[in-house]
Simulated scan of single mutants.
Amino acid sequence: MLIQLAIMGLLAAMLPLAIVWASSDADKYRKLVWVTVFLTFDLIMFGAFTRLTDSGLGCPDWPGCYGHANPLQAHEQISAAEAAMPTGPVTVAKAWIEMIHRYLAMGVGVLIIAIMVIAWMRWLKSKRQEARFSPGLPTMLFVSVCLQGAFGAWTVTLKLQPAIVTTHLLLGMLLLAMLTWLGARQSAVPASSPDGRRLALSAAVGSALLAVQIALGGWVSTNYAALACLDFPLCHGKLVPEMDFANGFELWRHLGKTGDGDWLPFPALTAIHWVHRNFAFVVVAWLGWLGLRAMRIDATRRTGRRILIVAGLQFMTGMSTIFLKWPLALAVVHNGGAAALVLLLTMLNFEARSAAQAAVNRAATRLSAA
């Protein structure tokens, strides 16, 4: 089974590798990194689809499906489970969704291994002269994707425990951010700006706020609290409804249960939803201000404009999911918006820091020339 799964991972990576190889881009390494960024973004979107369709336990074991490499080989066991519980966690469709997600994840893992190997080879060949091939970050990516795989396994073996599933989401976003930073490192250095340092600090704060909001959103999703409040801007007709923060935000507990093993009360779900909803105003306000500030600097103008657009769309899809009662397609798009903001804020952090460093280097050059 493990050999068959390894072959599936290699097959999933073959198409993007072929695209990179056949590309007219002279810098194949840069192309490979950005293709991997694109596929990681897609993987996060498909992971959201897997979670939102309740397919996380479509194959209740790991890494295979009932000990097999694909649902076809496990058709008898899957059909028996579906017959016993037609609306349960195991169906033929859910099994395929879950395994396709795993195949895609393995494919991204193969691409990251390729990135790490190439970086080490180029770094050693250039006698450690080319900074963009520094293997530290690619090696960290390899460690991160292995850790992400472990949390993927625990997601299944611990039966969708909210803390594990939310951490799995956060690690996926971190992987996207690290890949984006690596991709930005392959590109040309932007124009210098003395304002870059202050913007970089503001962008770092924005990234931290976004990380908290994504964690809260993951907590909403993994606890199935998306429909805990169906009105807006109020919740159950109140500005501050009845809420149970202690049980809602107790981290180590089983899905749908309190830490003591009782059923999770509805006010706990209300608390989870209400906190995520209201913290969104803080995040959108900061990102709006940050985007406008970035647009005043040549080196970050385009990224700042994109942050404004995506943050606005993300807020709109968040509100729409409430009014439309969390339709699947819109919920997946909302997850994709969060991933897009991670990518854009990572780019802004890199551009702002690079612009500030370029300004320092330029000043030093002038001083030495004088």
Rank of each mutant, 00 (worst) to 15 (best):
T155R: 09
F41H: 01
L343W: 05
I19C: 10
H168T: 03
S187W: 03
H68V: 04
T157H: 13
V332L: 03
N70M: 09
E98H: 09
C235V: 10
G288D: 00
V360Y: 08
F249N: 08
A191G: 09
A228G: 14
I113P: 06
L15H: 07
V212M: 14
E76T: 15
A340D: 02
L2T: 07
A84R: 04
E242P: 11
I309D: 07
H75N: 14
F46Y: 15
V35S: 04
A299G: 06
P63Y: 02
A84H: 15
A285N: 06
M45G: 04
T300I: 00
T258A: 08
A339K: 00
L199V: 05
A22N: 11
S55D: 08
V35F: 00
E82P: 06
L348V: 13
A188G: 06
H68G: 05
A6I: 10
F279Y: 15
N223W: 14
S202E: 09
G237E: 09
W123F: 10
N361R: 13
R366H: 10
T222M: 07
A153T: 13
L341M: 13
L141K: 02
T36M: 02
M106D: 07
A246P: 05
L251E: 09
Y224F: 14
G88K: 01
A311F: 08
A188K: 07
T346D: 15
R301I: 07
G88M: 08
S207G: 15
T317N: 04
E351D: 11
S24P: 06
L17D: 03
I309V: 14
R362W: 13
T36N: 03
F142C: 15
F38R: 11
F49C: 08
G67E: 02
A215N: 15
T300P: 07
F350L: 09
M347V: 03
G56P: 04
